Amino acid sequence: MSETVQTPEKKPAGMRPWLKVVLFTSLALNLAVAGVMIGAVVRFGPFDGGRPPRLDMVVGPYTHALSHRDRREIGERLRDDYRAARPSREQVRAEFAEVLTALRAKPYDGDKVEAILMRQMKIGTERQERGQHLLIERLEQMSDTERAEFADRLEEGLNRHRPFKPDRD
């Protein structure tokens, strides 16, 4: 007589449902904390206080003080201008390939790298100038009341940010 011994079937090893919930909650909390920290740095700037303000920190208050309609209209005009004159992706890639080649060249050709960087900066500067022109144009079109409201929003936005404190060495 042969006896057969039955062994219980093994369940596939998997994560227990409660452990999934704990891990998901932990991940969500970590992302929330990271988001708060990143948001603080974006809103108030880096905590070292020794850097010059970024361009968007200088231009940003003016942009935020515009009405939603004005901001949208200026943004659309700026995008249309940019789309009409922007280089293709292939041109951008070719320019960066040119920089990489110049950086690796022996002997190093600093003038060539500088010329490319200056071309790239010129594009950014032209776009910034166009944005300033559109802002000035809109300010000139505003009524006295609209301009006063803009000034109030600008002042309110400036007061929301911490005041500049020079480094004390």
Rank of each mutant, 00 (worst) to 15 (best):
M15F: 12
A34M: 14
A40T: 10
P12A: 15
F24H: 01
V36C: 14
S26Y: 06
R16I: 12
F47W: 11
L27V: 11
P53N: 01
V22R: 08
P52E: 09
R43S: 13
P12N: 13
D56N: 13
G60F: 06
K20S: 04
L66Q: 08
S26T: 12
V42A: 13
F47H: 14
A65E: 01
V42S: 08
L31C: 08
V41M: 05
N30T: 15
P12H: 12
M15L: 15
R54C: 03
K11S: 11
K20Y: 08
V22E: 00
L55H: 09
L29D: 00
W18D: 09
L29P: 00
L23S: 04
R54N: 07
K11P: 04
G35Y: 10
V21Q: 10
L27S: 06
V59G: 01
M37W: 15
S26P: 00
W18L: 14
A28W: 01
G35D: 07
G45P: 05
P53Y: 07
V59K: 00
G60Q: 10
A13C: 12
K11H: 14
V42K: 09
G49M: 07
L27W: 01
P46M: 11
L29Y: 04
L19H: 09
V21H: 05
Y62S: 05
M15N: 04
L66S: 01
A13E: 12
K20W: 06
K20Q: 07
V59N: 00
F44Q: 08
P52G: 07
Y62W: 06
M37L: 14
L29G: 02
H64D: 15
K10E: 14
T25L: 14
A32K: 01
G14A: 15
V42C: 00
F44N: 13
L31K: 09
P17K: 07
L23W: 03
P17V: 06
G50T: 05
R54V: 01
R54A: 13
D48T: 06
L55V: 13
H64T: 13
R54L: 09
V58Y: 15
L55I: 13
